[in-house]
Structure formats: C-alpha cells, structure tokens
Design a protein around this nucleic acid. Structure first.
Lengths: 111, 111
DNA sequence: TCGCATACCTAATTTTATGATGTATATAAG
DNA sequence: CTTATATACATCATAAAATTAGGTATGCGA
C-alpha cells in the first residue's frame, strides 16, 4: 500500500533513464529495480501505460526495432520537449527534497 | 499538469510537518507553500481528503480545539504508527532520491 | 457593511493505479 | 521434442485518487 510515491516518480525516472540512450520497457523495469536496490518495484501494468501516456504527451518517441537477439523491441527516446520536461521535473523534485531536508534536519527549534 | 509528484509527496510531507508539533489544515497549507518557496502549491481539495485518509489509516489523530484567536481548528498530531510510517516514507524517499542522483550524475559513461 | 483572510468541507468528473490476465518468441534443460 | 523460464509487449476491470468546482462560517479591518 501507499506506493503512490513510487508511481509518481515514474515519469521523472523514465525521463532520466532515457537521458543518455534509448531504452525499452522491459529493460527500464530492470534498470529501475537495480538502481534502487529493489526498493522500487514497478510492475509492467504500471510502466506500459505510463510510457504510452508519455508518448502521447510528446515527451518520448518510440520505434520498433529488432535487437541483435532478434527480438522485437519498442525503443523509446527523449524528445526535445522531453528534455525540457526533465529539467522541470528535476527542479520540482529537488525543491520537494529541499523541503524534506529542512523538515528532517536534526535541529529541534526550527520547523 | 503532472502534479502527481506533488500530490504523492503529501503524505510524507504531512507526517514530517507533524513530527515536532501538532498543526491544522490551513496552516499546513501555508507551511508547505513557504517551505518550498511556492513550488509546492497544494489546494485545500488536495489536502483535506489526504488528512482524512491518513486519520482513517491511523497515522494521525485529530481533535477540535479553540485557538487563542478564538477560532475552531482541527488539530492533527502524529500517532506512534504515524511515527513509524514516517520512517518508512523517509527511507522510500531517500532510496528514490539516490536513484535520481545516480542518474543525474555528471558522468556520461555510467548512464 | 464589504471584502478578505482564516478555517473547514464535499460532490462530481476525470484520471491513475492495481491485480489479473493475455500473447508471443528465444533459449536452455530435460 | 517438450517444458520451463526469461524476454517482451499489452489490455481489462476494478479500486483508488486527483481535480475542478462549489459550499459554509467566523473574525477583522477598511
């Protein structure tokens, strides 16, 4: 329960993962898992709709390609708009993070 | 659009705000606003249902009290369970944050 | 008395999340 | 050759949550 936060981080996480190279659903799932040491466990039912929404929104773009393993994969890449949106998400994240840090600071008198 | 993240941070944010002292809806709204320098702009329609859900869940507890200004306010306080849940949320947040930091690291090769 | 800030709230619609499935191929094990 | 597993995509139905819009009431200053 209460995985809302994990779900909400999906958009910025996908944008971040695609920053340097294109990727595909199944791999994104594994990357996120390993990046978080298992804490973030996305399901396919979470990710695929998110990818579709994001493509619809225009922040990512997909194309089917056959991998060296001869498997069909839907590769996603950032669009320019997506690159800008990543910056927005990043600032949003850091601003919320800053608020948390202030609240979690050991000092008692503040708050 | 895409305020999902802000909404999702509501639960941990409320728990964090109540860590040291009790508070009430209207004030929580202002605190969050000022803590984030305006980035996080919650609406009342976001917050009140969240508070009710959280009370229902047992992480916070409420009581009506008349303030010095002679106004009725519904004060919320953390329960023991809420205190534990805050720790869980904290770890969750930091683990996701860690993943982002790795992804946003200036190094190109690491991805 | 008018407006604004304070202080709470819900109802209706839209959007998301979740758990359960469904499809198909490559590859390794038996 | 058959079975199991990993890879790879997806949707459907239900449950939960978010968003827009509205509603009530008081204290206080102009």
């Amino acid at each position: 329960m209460s995985k809302t936060l994990i779900a909400a981080s999906a958009r910025p996480m996908v944008l971040s993962l695609l920053l340097n190279e294109e990727s595909y659903g199944y791999r994104i799932l594994q990357d996120v898992m390993s990046l978080s040491g298992g804490t973030i466990d996305w399901s396919e039912a979470l990710l695929y709709p998110v990818l579709h929404r994001m493509e619809n929104e225009g922040v990512i773009r997909s194309r089917w390609r056959i991998s060296e393993e001869k498997r069909m994969r839907k590769y996603y890449a950032l669009t320019d708009f997506g690159r800008r949106e990543l910056e927005v998400e990043k600032e949003r994240w850091l601003s919320i993070h800053g608020a948390f840090l202030r609240l979690w600071a050991p000092a008692e008198g503040s708050e």
